[in-house]
Design a protein around this nucleic acid. Structure first.
Lengths: 210, 210
DNA sequence: CCCTTAATAGTCACTAGGACTATAAAGAGA
DNA sequence: TCTCTTTATAGTCCTAGTGACTATTAAGGG
């Protein structure tokens, strides 16, 4: 999770999700992409998947004034070192489990985000957006295991992924990733499919329903 | 679909989704519920399921000024006759397929709504929100068939629904709905479950992906 | 008194997938 | 150099879920 340390009141010194205000002539999507580029320093964020989560509009969620926030999730593999924005003291990547006690209602937003992304991993090919352009099935599986917080059986995962047409396709030339510890893994890239049929379901879905 | 005929420019005379503006101290959910009560004349909308869909913020989507809309879907069985609001010439219920050429970007919003609700029928017990407090499995099946636009096999649907713990529970006293044409159907009510495991999947999902 | 309609019960076979074992191919360490 | 460990890959077995059926029951209509 990309978090920024707030430099000003309210919640000065507390960590928060990065964000900003809409400019007069941009959509929320455009603004989110702009803020993402600013915080990460990434030159090209145009190809990144940006997913609108939901809108938070409860009065009083910002003690200063009425603020309506449209939350987005962006998924980037191998993220670069972040750059703190203007009103932030610092910015850094934090594991999900350590991102606690955030400013405003950002704990709630973060939990919703994980929920949503975890759910979309089941029914869409979203997981490849977390991977570099060429990846091994082990890396893809780690995406699922990280977001879902549960281990998966490797042979079954492999069978399922390869049996889904268009999910992944092998890199031509029988390319393999060497340098690891075990047998070199074959390299794949994202296929043309966007949805998974049938879905790749978590066996036991604990946690927040509906 | 509850549509209102616009009485003023822009799009005067065109049908549109009902909506309104946030009051200074209410959340989008509260505002949506208030607008729903105004348009439908329903006294108690507190128990209705209201689902936030997404937020539309493209500049220029309203020619008058910058408007950001948070779209919600409410599901009501046996809806009452609507009452046109202040700025609407008329209000009426319209089948989904006849709700075309709406004002603003409301065609898009409506399509997104159907998509979202159709998807949630697969994984949640949302369908019971479309039914009266006591309903037959045939009525529940019609919800799925209407939203998905495809017929379902009745015995299989029945088996699936009854095999899902907490989805529906029989009304005590072996109550049945008589007065129909065939064999009287047993009455059920919504159970405590909110999610379906495993999901009730559409066999062929055509249409808009991801 | 049939005939139609709709609900309900049950069968059969196929498939996806969970659990598991076995093999292959690399690096690490003795 | 020869294990040993690690990881990828291949394959097996079995069961729950479900699509496609057929059969039966119980109402109303002509």
């Amino acid at each position: 999770m990309l978090l920024v340390e707030r430099g000003q009141e309210p919640y000065a010194g507390r960590w928060a999700l990065p964000g900003g205000f809409l400019l007069p002539d941009e959509s929320a999507e455009t603004a989110a992409r702009r803020e993402l580029a600013e915080e990460t320093g990434l030159a090209d964020v145009s190809g990144l998947h940006l997913e609108q989560l939901r809108t938070y509009s409860e009065p009083g969620r910002d003690p200063r004034m009425r603020v309506v926030s449209v939350a987005f999730a962006a998924l980037l593999p191998d993220p670069p070192e972040p750059h703190a924005g203007s009103d932030a003291a610092e910015a850094r990547w934090t594991p999900y489990d350590e991102a606690r006690d955030l400013a405003f209602d950002h704990d709630r937003i973060l939990a919703d985000a994980r929920d949503r992304v975890g759910g979309r991993l089941e029914y869409t090919c979203l997981a490849t957006a977390f991977c570099p352009p060429e990846f091994t099935l082990g890396e893809l599986q780690q995406v699922y295991e990280t977001v879902w917080g549960a281990p998966l059986d490797r042979p079954n995962f492999r069978r399922k992924v390869l049996a889904t047409p268009g999910f992944v396709e092998p890199v031509p030339g029988a390319a393999r990733l060497t340098g690891g510890r075990g047998k070199p893994a074959a390299l794949y890239r994202a296929g043309p499919a966007t949805t998974l049929h049938p879905p790749l379901l978590r066996t036991s879905r604990e946690g927040r329903p509906a």
